[in-house]
Amino acid sequence: MSASSPMRTPATRKRRRLYAVLAGLTMLGIAAALVLTAFQDNIVFFYSPSDLTEKELRPGQNIRLGGLVEEGSVKKAADGVTTEFVITDLSKTVPVRYGGLLPDLFREGQGVVSQGTLGPDGVFVASEVLAKHDEKYMPPEVADALKRSGQWKEPTK
C-alpha cells in the first residue's frame, strides 16, 4: 500500500477490472450487432408479398410467405381438403393453395405464415400454414363494442 506504486492499490485494480469488463461488453455488443446484421436475411422468419417481388427465387425454392389473409378470399375447393386464399401485405398480394389442416386461429383478416414454393403460375403452393396473431388481447364483447363504435384499428402490418 505504498504511495509510490499507485497501480498496486486495490482501488485502481478494481477500476481497471471495471474498465476491462465495460470494454469487453462494448466489443461484444458491437460484434453481436454486426453478426446479426450480417445474418439479417437468415433471421427473418418469413417474407412479405412485397419482399417476394424483389427477391430472386430459384424455381422450386422453399420459402416462408407471411401476411394477412385477405378478407373474402378464402375458398374451400371441391375436394373438401384444399383451401385457396390470398395473402396480402396491403400493397401486394399472392394467391396461396394449401391442402392440409388449418390452425384454429386461421381466419380472414388474420396474420398467417405459410411455407412452400412459388409456382410458375404465380400461385404459392403451401406445405404448411401457421397462424400469427397480433399483440392485442381483449374479451370478445370489448372487441365487438370497439367495432360497433368505429374505434377498431385494423392491423397495418
Binding site: 422468419f45 390452425p103 384454429d104 404448411e128 401457421l130 397462424a131
Partner: peptide, 12 residues
C-alpha cells in the same frame, strides 16, 4: 400448437 399450428419454429 393450438393457435399457431406448431409446437416449435426456429424464429428469432
Amino acid at each position: 400448437k393450438p393457435m399457431w399450428g406448431t409446437w416449435w419454429e426456429w424464429d428469432a
